[in-house]
Amino acid sequence: MGKVVLKVNDLAAAYRKNTVLHDVNFAVEAGSLTGIVGPNGAGKSTLIKTLLELHPALTGEVQFFGASFKKMKTRIGYVPQRGSVDWDFPTIALDVVMMGLYGQIGWLRRPAKLHQEKAYEALDKMGMADYAERQISQLSGGQQQRVFLARALVQNADLYFMDEPLAGVDAATERAIMNILKELKATGKTVLVVHHDLQTVEDYFDHVLFLNRTVVEHGRTAQVFTDENIAAAYGGNMRGMRGGKFHVVRPVEQ
C-alpha cells in the first residue's frame, strides 16, 4: 500500500438520536480513485460531511496527511451534491468557480485578475468556457455539475471528496467528469467519489468502499467488487448477477 493520505479510526455519527455511522475504519492511499457505494440511507453523504467536520462526529479520529483536518484544510477539496445549492442565486458560472479560491484569497481582499483567469481556465478544462458569463440558472444539470467540478479544480487540492457528481448528468458530462478524475489521479491526487451506479464501478474506480452504516468492505476494485460484497452491502434484495444486470433503484436526492 502506498502513502496513506486519509486515515479514519472508529468514526461514528448520528442525526439526533439515530446513529447513521458506526465503527467506521479505513485508510486511503495517495493517488487512488475510490468509489463509495451503498444503498440509500447508508450514510455516504454523512460520511463525507463528518470527515470534513460539516457534521459532528460522535466518536473517532480522522487524519489527513498525518495531521488534523484544520491543519490540512487547504489541501482538501469538496464538491457538494448539486442539489444542495440554490441555482437561482443571482450569479454567473465564472463567479461560482471563483468561490473555490475564496479561501486562498483571504479576508478583506477582492478576487483579482489572476483569480479570474484561473477560474476561466478551469471552466475551459471542463468544456464550459463559452458559458463563463452565463447566469447559473440557465445552465443544464450537467453544465451545473461541470461548474462544480471546475470550482474543485481551481482549489488545486491534493485530496478531493465528491458527493454524487455523476447523478443526473448527461453522457457527455459523465465522460468529461471521468476524464478529469482520471487526470487528477494521474497527477497524484486522491479522489473519493460517492457513486450510485454499480454498473460503472469497475470501469471508473480502482478502489471501492462498500458502505452501509459501517464499512462493509474496502479495497482494490478487482478484489473486492464481488457479488458477495454487493449483497452484503445492499442486503439480500440485491440480486447480484454480474455483467450489467443489476437492478438498482437510483437514489433520489438526499
Partner: peptide, 10 residues
Amino acid sequence: FDPALAASLG
C-alpha cells in the same frame, strides 16, 4: 450560496 463549501474552506 454554498455554506457547505464555505465551511470546508474555513
